[in-house]
Amino acid sequence: MAQATPDERELHNLIKSGDDLAFSRLCDKYLESTIKKVRQFNRQAHSIDNSIISEVVVDSFYAYLHNPEKFNPDKQTLERFLVIDAEGDLKNAWAKRKKHYQKFEVIKNEVEFDEQFRNSESGRIITLKTPSQMLIDKEADGILSTELKKHFNSEKDIEMAILILSRERDTGRYAAILEITHLQFEEQQREVKRNKDRIKKVLDRKMKGKQF
């Protein structure tokens, strides 16, 4: 089994020693390639939720930063360790995410609804709205907004909840609501994930079974 290269050992030792620039070097060298490899090996998760893999990989990098002893340079390369570690975390995160999707039946079949159907009699195109689009339409009438205000005191939380219910995946949109676009992308992802998880717990607990 391949062992860590001299460069990997040097970087690992810098991580262990708490060097200020070590984590930045780690991300510069391995973050993008690790995300790509994990995506290649987990196409189903990426096709359904294209943000989950990058979020999990970033979290796994931070986990390694805070507990570098989990990596043994005598047993494998650092690159291989980072991929395997992220895949293990992804398996757990994906299982939780699928349970979350199941709780929101109103949006779980969105792909099936997001198609155009041809009327066989008139030949005209009929576009069926997705459940998420229906939610947003009704939110415009104040129904969804009124319900969310019962459970969230912050306008930012309400805006994020609406994006979550509409299955918005763009980290940038959440970052804009949280006013953290000035942070580095990895920090934005981490903060967005923390807030999304918090809001999802409220939605799961307070709004399960609600009809809008």
Rank of each mutant, 00 (worst) to 15 (best):
K98T: 11
L26Q: 06
R173D: 02
L163R: 11
E187Q: 12
L163E: 06
S54R: 06
N109Q: 10
D204C: 08
Q44M: 12
E121Y: 07
T130Q: 03
K96N: 04
E10G: 02
T127D: 11
E87S: 13
F61A: 03
Y101T: 00
K196C: 09
E187M: 13
M134H: 13
D19E: 12
K208Q: 14
E186S: 09
Q116A: 11
L14C: 07
I199S: 02
H100L: 07
E155R: 04
D85E: 10
T5E: 07
L82E: 01
N119T: 06
K200W: 03
E110K: 01
A4S: 15
F152K: 10
F61Q: 03
F185M: 05
L65G: 02
I52C: 06
F41T: 11
I107G: 00
V83M: 05
Q76V: 08
G142S: 05
A4E: 09
I84P: 00
A140L: 11
D28Q: 10
T77R: 15
V38F: 14
L135S: 02
K75Q: 13
Y62D: 07
G18P: 14
A86L: 09
Q44E: 09
D137K: 11
I177D: 01
D74H: 09
I136W: 03
D7S: 11
D7I: 00
G142M: 06
H66Y: 14
L148N: 10
R9D: 01
K150T: 12
A22M: 05
K208M: 13
L203P: 08
E155C: 00
I143Q: 10
Y62C: 03
A86Q: 10
L82K: 05
L31V: 03
N119R: 07
L178S: 01
Q3F: 08
L165G: 02
I158E: 07
A161H: 08
E168Q: 15
E79G: 06
K196F: 02
L203R: 11
H182G: 15
Q3H: 09
T130R: 09
E179F: 02
R97E: 08
